[in-house]
């Protein structure tokens, strides 16, 4: 197990190395609009000591942009290992500062959606499996399919239109109401929470379908297993069959996937955050990517790549941990 974990970790590092290289080459080829603007800005400052060209050279050297993608990539890697992630160009702050500001909003949003997703999707999936081909099954399946097929941006816009424009229950976007500054700390918290409702609902609806279908499929598989037939034959009450025998066995794949998606709680919701102007990591990174902010984008992409790899690793390890039949090699 330990050996397997170490092997997987080493693989992950290798994969990460190449993934970041591909991303770096891509960012490297951005027509450096930002560096030029930045150099212009610095050169036009009153007490500027360098000309535009000198600034451009300086900035390029600082970000390793002048030595070609290979050396540039290693410059970036070297900086990262020294703990120097650079300053975000867009937010004019150290990357880690921006990250610290943003990540908890994203995590809160992710966690709330994750909890509700589990609460809604798993019981629904089990219910659908129990009544296979029944009305509940068909409607739940159709609902799940619609959730899966809904483009995030359309759902978000629709929710905004219904609840913010027509019913006026919420603000259209943003994290704080107009009178945020005049509220007591507790009311401020409630105000922010209120602004998180629509984005959370969006995320819940988008993710609910997949989990529901997954639960249903696995439950069906378990319900068709021999030991369930045996249990029923023994005269175990149906309730007990479902809750004791079937559900526990369904939990194996569920825990594996849910565990695997835990790191994803930190990755932020790019589209949803952007559309609702929630200043989480997704929104920040979108803004950064659009202007070609290399330090922050590189950081963010590295971050979510690590989260993905971590998720896969956790899922595999959990699989072995939960199901004693599985042996990892």
């Amino acid at each position: 197990m330990l050996k397997y974990t170490i092997k997987r970790l080493l693989y992950s590092v290798l994969i990460l190395f190449f993934v970041m290289f591909i991303i770096y080459v891509l960012m490297y080829n951005m027509p450096a609009g930002y560096i030029e603007t930045k150099a212009m800005e610095l050169a036009n400052k009153q007490n500027s000591t360098r000309s535009f060209d000198e600034w451009l050279k300086f900035l390029n050297a600082q970000y390793g942009m002048d030595k070609g993608p290979f050396i540039g990539y290693f410059t970036w890697l070297g900086n990262v290992f020294r703990g120097n992630l650079g300053d975000s160009w867009k937010w004019t702050q150290p990357v880690t500062e921006v990250f610290k500001d943003a990540i908890w909003y994203s995590f809160a949003l992710g966690l709330v959606s994750f909890i509700f997703e589990i609460i809604i999707a798993i019981p629904l999936g089990i219910k659908a499996a129990k009544n296979q081909y029944g009305v509940v099954d068909y409607s739940a399946s159709a609902f799940a399919m619609i959730c899966i097929s809904m483009p995030t941006f359309f759902l978000a816009t629709l929710l905004k239109y219904i609840f913010a424009v027509k019913l006026k229950w919420f603000d259209i976007s943003g994290m704080q109401g107009k009178f945020y500054d005049q509220l007591s700390p507790f009311m401020q918290f409630l105000d922010v929470a209120k602004h998180f409702i629509l984005p959370s609902v969006t995320l819940i609806i988008i993710s609910i379908g997949g989990l529901m279908r997954y639960t249903r499929t696995n439950m069906l598989e378990v319900l068709n297993a021999d030991y369930i037939r045996t249990a029923r034959a023994k005269g175990v009450p149906e309730k007990k069959v479902i809750s004791h025998h079937a559900f526990r066995n369904t939990l194996i794949p569920l825990i594996t996937t849910l565990g695997g998606s835990l790191p994803g709680l930190f990755s932020g919701a790019l589209i949803t955050e952007t559309l609702f102007a929630i200043r989480g990591i997704g929104f920040r990174s979108y803004e950064s990517m659009v202007v070609g902010d290399i330090p922050f984008t590189m950081f963010y992409l590295a971050f979510i790549s690590i989260l993905t790899l971590l998720g896969n690793l956790i899922a595999d390890l959990l699989y072995a941990a939960v199901d004693p039949r599985v042996r990892l090699s």
Partner: peptide, 8 residues
């Protein structure tokens, strides 16, 4: 598999 496709 690991490359985040939407950002890319």
């Amino acid at each position: 598999y690991c490359i985040p496709s939407m950002p890319i």
